[in-house]
């Protein structure tokens, strides 16, 4: 196994970088979308409930099926993978964002309104700082789930660590399967641990 890594380091590092790149793009896009949706949903509780319900239904559709359904529309490749990952993340992010914002003590909110803050000021200066822990938990969960689902994206030719697994499986190459699994598992566990540490500091 070590021999393989010594001989072909680029075959392991390239997919890893690809995986991280996919993760970062997905994270940025889904954070933008989720914040926009959260801001809209602060104005209407009916809207926020329907939104969370819709995304929870989408979330229960298996990723492979969703990838498969999008292929006729957006084709194979990273674009499809990123769209699916962003949609999946919306459920985890929105649920945590909205719940976190709602759990801010109502007396604090009233005091802020009494001081003459408008809705945006209330959101940005009171609610977001007070619920940063719930928000960050949402981000951590979505990062971990993105790493997991992104391995599946290799089946639709999106690259990433899943491609090592795929190649290994097809050529019955145990070394490759092991490296792919270890890297994917390691990346997920490492990121989860790192973000948990940050979360505790908040």
């Amino acid at each position: 196994m070590i021999e393989y890594a010594m001989n072909y380091p680029d075959k392991l590092i390239d997919p890893l970088l690809e995986h991280i790149q996919m993760l970062v793009i997905t994270l940025i896009l889904s954070l933008i979308l989720a914040s926009a949706l959260t801001i809209i949903s602060t104005y209407s509780s009916v809207f926020s409930k329907t939104l969370v319900y819709i995304f929870s239904v989408v979330y229960s559709i298996p990723s492979l099926a969703l990838f498969a359904l999008l292929i006729p529309i957006t084709g194979l490749g990273q674009t499809t993978a990123i769209i699916v990952l962003v949609v999946y993340n919306q459920y985890l992010l929105l649920r945590n964002f909205i719940e976190g914002l709602n759990e801010v003590d109502s007396s604090i909110v009233e005091a802020a309104t009494g001081m003459g803050m408008n809705k945006m000021q209330l959101l940005l200066k009171i609610k977001v700082p007070l619920s940063r822990k719930a928000i960050f938990t949402g981000v951590r969960l979505s990062v971990v789930s993105t790493i997991g689902i992104a391995t599946i994206a290799a089946f639709i030719n999106a690259g990433g660590l899943g491609s090592i697994l795929n190649d290994g499986l097809r050529t019955v190459n145990t070394v490759k399967i092991l490296w792919g699994s270890f890297l994917a598992a390691g990346l997920a566990i490492f990121t989860n641990g790192l973000l948990s540490k940050v979360e505790e500091k908040l």
């Binding site: 971990v144 790493i147 997991g148 689902i149 391995t151 599946i152 899943g162 697994l165 290994g168 499986l169 145990t174 399967i177 092991l178 792919g180 699994s181 270890f182 994917a184 598992a185 997920a188 566990i189 989860n192």
Partner: peptide, 17 residues
């Protein structure tokens, strides 16, 4: 919790050997 974080595809393929 740690076992859960591992991507399921990785678990599936790790079990093959």
């Amino acid at each position: 919790q740690v076992l859960r974080v591992i991507p399921s595809l990785a678990v599936l393929l790790l079990l093959i050997p």
